[in-house]
């Protein structure tokens, strides 16, 4: 950001990679990002990992923010949005640290943003139904959530739990201010809806995770579903209020 010319022809793109004990895969994710998206700055949020995630990410050439305690995915991602807001990035892209998302799709997320002007673009794995499609039980849950979100927002949402998303400036400033803490993806959509920001989906192909474990284990899935449904329904009861683009760090 120091030796980067400030111009509209060259938008500043930040890739936010939340990582919790992802030492196995993080190096390759960063390397792939720097090959496929050399125009983007990579920021790894090390969410209090107990393994070598931070060191490997640094050695792979990413910017790393180390969080002292484990905040969970929401808190980690919000750190990235705060960074993006403070450093005046035009776009912030969330990518999981486990290799699920293909960095080469980033270009398509960007072009979808240019085309539609949406505040957030989500990479959905269920539009073309290609690549890794998740397990049956999980797909059921996602189906339920997408039906719920589609109903509540009046906009077709196929993959509300996708963590592959690109945000424009308005969404960055909103998320820097308020962002749900745990299991944030679905709630973030409702947050956008409540603040009258727009979002759209494009098809992407996802992989099976490379290493580490998903933040949602079998035991937690019941808690996950009830928590997400409750918070989504409660979000709907909140009054719609347009977001003014403002962020004081």
């Amino acid at each position: 950001m120091l030796n980067r010319p400030e111009s509209h022809n060259n938008p500043k793109v930040l890739v936010i990679v939340p990582a919790y004990n992802e030492a196995e895969g993080i190096g390759q994710v960063i390397r792939r990002l720097r090959e496929d998206a050399p125009y983007a700055d990579v920021l790894v949020i090390n969410d209090g990992s107990s393994d070598a995630t931070s060191r490997i990410a640094r050695a792979s050439g990413a910017n790393v923010i180390d969080l002292t305690c484990n905040l969970g995915i929401g808190g980690a991602v919000q750190t990235g949005y705060r960074y993006a807001a403070e450093h005046h990035y035009d776009y912030a892209v969330q990518i999981d640290g486990d290799g699920q998302h293909n960095p080469c799709d980033l270009r398509r997320l960007l072009s979808a943003q240019f085309d539609t002007g949406a505040d957030m673009v989500i990479g959905s794995r269920f539009i073309t139904k290609e690549g890794f499609q998740s397990t049956f039980a999980r797909k059921m849950g996602i189906g339920l959530l997408s039906a719920l979100v589609t109903r509540l927002t009046g906009q077709n949402v196929t993959d509300p739990t996708s963590g592959y998303r690109l945000c424009g400036r308005r969404a960055i400033s909103l998320f820097a201010r308020e962002y749900p803490t745990d299991y944030p993806e679905v709630e973030a959509l409702m947050l956008l809806y409540n603040r009258e920001l727009s979002f759209t989906e494009i098809p992407v192909v996802m992989n099976e995770r490379q290493g580490g474990v998903s933040s949602i284990s079998a035991m937690k899935s019941v808690y996950y579903m009830s928590k997400v449904i409750l918070s989504v329904l409660l979000m709907k009861t909140k009054k719609k209020r347009a977001w003014e683009n403002r962020y004081e760090s």
Binding site: I65, D66, L67, L71, T79
Partner: peptide, 12 residues
């Protein structure tokens, strides 16, 4: 959460 984030950002 806010403090941990701020700490991380400042450290970086």
């Amino acid at each position: 959460i806010v403090l941990t984030q701020t700490l991380g950002l400042q450290e970086q």
